[in-house]
Amino acid sequence: MKFIKNIAVCVFALLGAQQAFAYNCSGTAQYSDGSSYSNGAIVKNNNSAYQCTVGGWCSVGGPYAPGDGWAWSNAWNSLGACNGTGGGNSSSSSSSSVSSSSSSSNNNGSNNGSCPQWSSSAVYYTGDVVVYGGSYYIAEHDNPGYDPTISTWFWDPTSSCPGGNGGGSSSSTPSGNGFSAIVSEAQFNQMFPNRNTFYTYAGLVNAAATFPAFSTRGNLTTQKREAAAALANFSHETSGLYYINEIAQGTYCSGTATACGVCAAGKKYYGRGPIQLSWNYNYCTAGQALGLDLWSNPDQVAQNPTTAWRTALWFWMTQSGAGYRPAHDSMVNGNGFGETIRTINGSLECNGGNPGQVQSRINTYLDFTQILGTTPGNNLDC
């Protein structure tokens, strides 16, 4: 009971603090759920003003709707209650990036985007938007296909489909098929502004074509989350796609025979490529899977961009590593980003092994989901 009382005191204190200041809402645009907002945009909602701090999440709406959604404070700062001078529905604000096409969307389908019809057999994740009974609903929490009208804990009505405006903070809308339809080259460049020129977008797209399930399974939210998760981990392993080869270039020969032999004469199996593929047995197994002799010539991974990306995706899609399942499966089946970290580095980072490294990966993942205009989901830590 003492704990509950303390919560109540904090809530009343926060409410009182919000009433202590006001904002002149004159000329401030009315917030429109699911419309596009950039960092710094100021809107009014429920007679209070808010400023966007995370453009990707501000544009999702639903759980991030200012003052309404349960996670709104992660995307917006409260500027205070409108002081009465601008409480109307004016849409003329230089600080808001709402487009006319987005702000005019409604439940009649004018912004249908790519939101699917609800299905009882589908698994939905926080932030997913579906069409049900001719109206839009956004998932407030992950659920195994519950009816959108069953509970506001799992679903809430929303005014539009976020997929209709392209999403993300990049001005480039992805086009093409497979991975290139999820991450555009402009978004890739935004994620890796200081990358080594070896790591080309074309090489990644070509490599992804050899793993057609990569970032194409589940709904659009799931696809974007997987792309963000993979690229965030690759970024962490290479300091933003800067390093091609591991700095400490040890031999990494286990001394145990593999299907290819023990270790090729004079060859070292130190980390190379986006996932920093290491050890003789991994080079053997990856090479066999990819149809390349990586065991006798591991340097191929550092010489051909597509090969480098393919080794990273081979591990991501097929190897359980130090975890319980391949990272791809964790993202598609809703186990969360934290489990991809476990697959890559296991107890070296997870379960308190190195919380700083884990948080670094999480921070990058959050940045990348913002760029792609999606939500991160649950279970970020391991």
Rank of each mutant, 00 (worst) to 15 (best):
F211D: 08
Q190A: 15
C284R: 09
G56C: 10
D381A: 10
A286E: 13
N6G: 11
W279H: 08
A29V: 02
Q357N: 07
S320M: 06
S32M: 05
V98H: 08
Y365Q: 03
T256L: 11
N194Q: 14
D142N: 15
Q19T: 08
C253L: 02
E246F: 04
Y269H: 10
Y252N: 13
W155H: 09
G55L: 03
F154Y: 15
N345I: 04
K268L: 08
E185F: 03
K267R: 15
A49C: 15
A248H: 10
S180L: 03
I138Q: 15
G178K: 09
A49H: 04
I244A: 05
S101Q: 10
N363F: 06
G134D: 12
Y281R: 05
S36W: 13
T256I: 13
S59M: 10
W57H: 07
Y199A: 06
A227L: 09
N233M: 14
S36A: 09
G178D: 02
A13L: 15
A75C: 03
A17C: 13
N111Y: 02
D299N: 15
I341Y: 01
N345T: 05
C253N: 15
I247T: 14
S73K: 04
A248M: 04
V9C: 11
Y64P: 05
V60G: 00
S102W: 14
R325M: 14
F21C: 01
N280Q: 02
R272A: 05
P144M: 07
S104Q: 13
C260A: 08
G27Y: 07
G133Y: 09
S104I: 00
T197H: 07
G291T: 11
N108H: 00
S92C: 00
G27A: 10
F192C: 12
T28F: 00
N219R: 13
I362R: 04
N378Y: 08
G40V: 01
T200Q: 06
R272M: 10
P157A: 12
Y281N: 12
C25L: 10
N189S: 14
L15Y: 11
G62L: 13
L14F: 14
G373S: 08
C10Y: 12
G261H: 13
D381T: 14
Y136P: 07
V205Q: 02
L294H: 05
N194R: 03
A41K: 00
R225M: 12
E349M: 02
Q117C: 00
Y146H: 09
A213C: 00
N219F: 07
A29Q: 07
V60I: 14
S180F: 00
N297C: 01
Y324W: 06
M1F: 04
T285L: 10
T364D: 01
F192M: 13
A17R: 02
G203F: 07
L372N: 10
T210L: 12
S102F: 04
F337N: 02
N196Q: 07
D293K: 12
S26M: 09
N112Q: 12
N107K: 06
G134S: 15
G353E: 00
A20P: 01
R217T: 15
H236W: 13
T318E: 14
G88P: 03
P305Y: 05
S330K: 01
P376G: 03
T158C: 12
V332W: 01
T343M: 13
G250M: 02
A202K: 12
